[in-house]
Design a protein around this nucleic acid. Sequence first.
RNA 1: GCGGAUGUGGCGGAAUUGGUAGACGCGCAGCGUUGAGGUCGCUGUGGGGUAACUCCCGUGAAGGUUCGAGUCCUUUCAUCCGCACCA
Length: 907
Amino acid sequence: MSRYEPAVTEAKWQAAWEAAGVFTARRDPAKPKYYVLEMFPYPSGRIHMGHVRNYTMGDVVARQKAAAGYSVLHPMGWDAFGMPAENAAMERGGHPKTWTYGNIADMRAQMKPLGLSIDWSREFATCDPEYYGQQQAMFIDMMAAGLVYRKAAVVNWDPVDHTVLANEQVIDGRGWRSNALVERRELTQWFFRISDYSGELLAALDGLTHWPEKVRLMQANWIGKSRGLQFAFETVGAPAGFAALEVYTTRPDTLLGASFAAISPDHPLAKALEAGNPGLAAFVAECRRGGTTEAALETAEKMGFDTGIRVKHPLDPARELPVYIANFILMDYGTGAIFGCPAHDQRDFDFATKYALPIPPVFCAEGGDEAALTEAYTPLKSERVRYLRGFAGAEVQTGEEAVAAAIAHFETRGIGKGVTNYRLRDWGISRQRYWGCPIPVVHCATCGVVPEAKTNLPVKLPDDVTFDVPGNPLDRHPTWRNCACPKCGAPARRETDTMDTFVDSSWYYARFTAPHATTPTVTEDADYWMNVDQYIGGIEHAILHLLYSRFFARAMHATGHLPAKAIEPFNALFTQGMVTHEIYMGSVVTEGPSLKVDADGNQFQSIGVTRVKFYLPEEVVRIDISGKPEAVLLSALTDKNIDPANRQAVEDFWATERYAPLPTVGRELPILTVIPSAKMSKSKKNVVDPMNIIQAFGADTARWFVMSDSPPERDVEWTSSGAEATSKHLARVWRIADEISRADAPANAEDAALDRATARTIADVTQGIEGFAFNKAVAALYAFTNTMSKSTAGAGAKRAAMLAMAQLMSPMVPHLAEEIWAMLGGAGLVAQAAWPKADPALLVEDSVTLPIQINGKRRAEITVPKTMAASEVEKLVLADEDVIRFLAGQPVKKLIVVPGRIVNVVV
RNA sequence: GCGGAUGUGGCGGAAUUGGUAGACGCGCAGCGUUGAGGUCGCUGUGGGGUAACUCCCGUGAAGGUUCGAGUCCUUUCAUCCGCACCA
């Protein structure tokens, strides 16, 4: 009997698909279209298991939809701009372009053997001038549409390297290379007016019914709509031009609990005061130290500086509040100034405690009384509370009612107004870096800031650059910066900022519909293919990438590059989990056993000192000792001529070495610690290279494994034993098919049962795939394999069942499916066969087994016809022997019959 | 700090969405096949108790709602993701 050989078979079928052009997407007005897209990868150079899982999921969907009669678009490209290419150039020389395109070639070569149903003719990289040139054209259109502007914004400034740092390059407030303390510095930068769309982006979330609820919630919180009061404090002792201090608050009902006002260190008033007050200037400088991230600002120690200025309370002008500069007030939100109500905000409470400010409560629990607070009292806004210092609305009311009443009070008196605010800020796209899309703008002495002429696009990145000096090579390029003003022709200078790489990934889905066009999109293609029917990617993109893409689609529509139906570009979204793996932690001896002296002068025997070292899975031999995971070092076995495949010998080695003394200095300990289930990362060395798996077991094994067990939205643990088991299972399916192809048993009484099981499996697998529960589809196929293996049905029925199984497996393991399909004489390619349909008549069960609970515990069961009336079931239950015995004569209080499900007898 | 999620046997996980907890797989144990090992096939496998049973306990922890809770509510612990210049 022959064997199933993935290496031969997989290459054969990939060639067959290519020859038949099976995956080329075609605009076919006769068919419904289906556009499935996985988030495109950054070309790091190596694919990892997360990629395999992500793309296999998309492939399962794409292949199943193609079989179900859709015209499918399933493209692939590269998110190719970004910092790692520049870092590589800095570290080992060379050019970011060479590095990037080399990586793309490597990764494409690793992806092809997976047998994905991708239309490779549509491939592009965002660093192709043909792509970013079209992006520049859209930027110019967006400028014309008023969606782009410039303003000052803060960046992380490295004062030693004189460069702008990314947030990830700031470690504990210091630059990653220079180790200098980072400063927040203002630069004039380019922005997209995404905040003009805040309300719409929020409201439209309701229509995204096929998006995960959690993603919609995260986006809604990110956009952060709030209703509040804006009013001005009258200042006392402020410099000229600051007679009033505008503040915004979402809790105007707590205004009588205000004990101070505070402004951001970046507030114009703070800047005005800096010049004449060295102490204040030093404090503001202190506030500007450290990174720009919200997490850094929020977790920093809360600090304030009394400006000496006072403001008059708007409801009681006799009362004056001190004005502080406080490091936790954000200039970007509201007006950059607040009033503090320490009784009902923990941050304000801490601040008031620190600076000995009063903490008057505004309200207390509904039935409570005024009492001193030991922490801020912050009930939900929907909760009813009793106002001790209210000024609008009833004494007892909810926070929401009180806020509305307070706003109305201010508006009636004309001293403030209700304002809807959003947390969402405009999208800063300027990057002071080389490896990105140049912003197509020219600075002219007479014309000012002018967009480049479209005929001069693309504004290409110059190739002759070096990365030996920190900073932006474009900025110091001798000739690239000099150009002619597109308006007046006079000598001018190019903008040297490049675009945030999020811009690149905000429209690639649209470009795939016409990837080689000389305009950003082509109307007919966008009309046919948009929207993306199923988008698949990681949850880490839940906010930024997806929100920017939603904005960009709207901007593209506003500038005529997408139809109105595409302003929400992703009809359905699926967020998949990570692939995790055990970590193997070992030790290297750095110091041998010796006599030592402790702090009290006593001698003691040290057993030696070791340093932790992590090992790759392929450096390790993994065993289970009475169910517990253990591992030994492969090199330690080979040193002693122990065969790693001989389990007993490995176990003996483990048992003897386990308590052995430390080896000599510089050697590694042969026994390793196994840490279960951690995110794959290079530093922990727990990365599994998909290429090794494909070489050892074939692509189908890798594909089947990442689809089985874990629900796709959850993390999956990669285990070598699981991969082996998968490989064995696929070989078993092939063996069963092989036997069936040579069987000749006549039709018999078992055929009907197998037909029913086949129908059941078709229904379960189809439902599993369509509902993104690939693990359940796989489980149904496992169960069906057992059924097939045990069935004594005739050869005809078995052959039909196996052909259906090949089709049902084909989205997950397309190569094996083709092989079985061909072996059993299926017509054409399984990749082009119509998806099987279950005969509904075979799915109907005519009887059902009902469990019987007595007081909620299962005590018996009865089997009844499915259509039996509840009253009939009740009679049968009460007559059941087991039920009678359990009831032991007690009266039945209640009898609950859930048709088709369960019966509960309550006594 | 803020926002979002997750937690079920030795392990990955299932549970028709409030209705028999542990499907399916790994691992482990026994039997068979094989010259041995592996492969392959069959059977068993949450914990505890019992001569036996239709017994008791059990879904991170603690409370609650319900005839009935892994599923809903409250509190709490742990882990993961995001926080606007990583992609």
